[in-house]
Amino acid sequence: MATETKAPAASPAPATAAAIGEPAWARNLLIALGLGFIGLFLVLPLVAVFIEALSNGIGAYLAALHTPDTLAAIRLTLLVAAIAVPCNLVFGVIAAWAIAKFEFTGRSVLITFIDLPFSVSPVISGLVYVLLFGAHGWFGPWLVANNVQIIFAVPGIVLATIFVTFPFVARELIPLMQEQGTEEEEAALSLGANGWQTFWRVTLPNIKWGLLYGVLLSNARAMGEFGAVSVVSGHIRGLTNTMPLHVEILYNEYNFVGAFAVASLLALLALVTLVLKSLLEWRFGHELAVTRH
């Protein structure tokens, strides 16, 4: 996703500069096309969210946000992210430790499996848990008999969110820790540190920005996930309705100010994520994984 900004190559001699550059009209045309496309497809929708949200004034905007159902949706979204992101953080660090610091057969298969949730439709990400825990799922009868509800309840939403954010931290840390090798850890161990000390004092400081980067991206996805959560949620207002699902409910009720007010909060989250992500790439780019694909 990220690209390292490279120092420009030594500027070519003026004579060849003309030969390997484009004429001014072509350059301007390409810039206009590129920026026009981004303006039309990226900037305009973003602007539309805020304008629609504020179309009846700031008072209506705040009133739309300050309803019990909206506040419940915000609380649920924060709760789900607060569970899902740390789970995948712990998994990501441990998986990256095993994969990046040791050689073993089947390593690339394991990496492929970790990437799997990214190539699965969000709807399928929710569907798989319904097939396991739904009323007609594999464990459905047992769950019903023991009065445990996962689907159409918060645990299902958390599970689906963990699934869709599963690869973020691991796929950021694995290439980073592979680049860093094991020499520093070996030095720490030979100087008498134990395994935990080595991890906390040597490995963790080396990967902290990469870790933050992965957490940032998985948090954005966790709070914004729609498809997977929609399948397992049951859309019970005030109980199993996350912010993205609440946008849909309000929109379908023709409560456009309300829908776009909630959407504007999510858009703000996306903007903050983008700013922090750019800051991390710009300030600590050399401490992030160079190849992320």
Binding site: I38, L217, M243, P244, A263, L266, L274, S278
Partner: peptide, 22 residues
Amino acid sequence: DALVDLPFALPTAVAGVALTAL
């Protein structure tokens, strides 16, 4: 350059209602 990643960061439901409004 930073804006190019907007579709990765913007929740899909938000993109959906915004595009529909446009």
